[in-house]
């Protein structure tokens, strides 16, 4: 369904992001020690990781689809997801770094979640190196799909489990109270959940633009 030439979910994304930025600055937040007003970064930092994980899972799914059916368009989708994932991941690192500076006192702290994020970024870049080292299109697609499924599945398990086993400065781990307990009150929820959807949809939108561009190039070069 299109509204004024734009698909409905793109309008939804614009709407939710405008709402997030506007309400994110204005919504009533709990007064917490150390965090204070920086808690508003929740709407911009945590949501980036949500978007990144969603894009990562999408790239795994498209990788599996490519291996099953051998359609090169699936490979273009998967690698577009990864490009957007890198972009969103870098934004997540930057917003997280700023937040860490003003709450934990340093731009980078030794923390299970931060290390997991850094490792994930390394896998992303290794994926790019792997792709650039193979010339043949079908071969590149197949090997990149195998590597991305192999590496990202391991990463997902890792960043889901290890922080839960060790102490972390992040909320919800090792004796730190989670946001879900009482910090994330009902006011913040009204912004947090729309923010997740909004930023994820924006990620999908960016991915779609890159996908369409590369698909057009692909079709033209095959003519």
């Amino acid at each position: 369904m299109r509204i004024a030439g734009l698909q409905w979910w793109k309008w939804l994304s614009i709407l939710l992001i405008v709402y997030t930025v506007w309400q994110g600055m204005l919504v009533q937040v709990p007064r917490l020690p150390i965090l204070h007003e920086t808690i508003r970064n929740l709407f911009f930092h945590v949501t980036m990781w949500f978007a990144m994980i969603i894009l990562m899972v999408a790239s795994i799914i498209y990788g599996v689809k490519y291996l099953r059916h051998g359609n090169i368009l699936d490979d273009i989708k998967a690698s577009s997801c990864i490009h957007t994932g890198i972009f969103v991941g870098i934004l997540g690192l930057l917003t997280g770094s700023v937040w860490a500076k003003f709450t934990w006192g340093d731009w980078w702290v030794n923390d299970a979640k931060l290390n997991g994020a850094a490792a994930t970024m390394l896998v992303y870049f290794a994926y790019l190196v792997l792709r650039s080292s193979i010339d043949d299109e079908q071969k590149r697609a197949r090997i990149a799909a195998v590597y991305s499924i192999f590496a990202f599945t391991l990463m997902l398990v890792f960043i889901m489990i290890l922080p839960r086993l060790t102490d972390s400065l992040h909320p919800g781990n090792g004796g730190n109270p989670g946001f879900s307990n009482y910090d994330l009150d009902s006011h913040m929820r009204t912004v947090f959940y729309p923010a997740i959807v909004g930023w994820s949809l924006l990620g999908a939108w960016i991915t779609e633009i890159e996908y369409r561009l590369r698909k057009a190039n692909h079709l033209r070069s095959n003519q």
């Binding site: 490792a119 390394l122 290794a126 190196v129 792997l130 192999f150 590496a151 391991l154 398990v157």
Partner: peptide
């Protein structure tokens, strides 16, 4: 090593 080190981290 480029492909392996990041995967080895977990």
């Amino acid at each position: 090593s480029i492909l392996g080190f990041p995967v080895l981290i977990p």
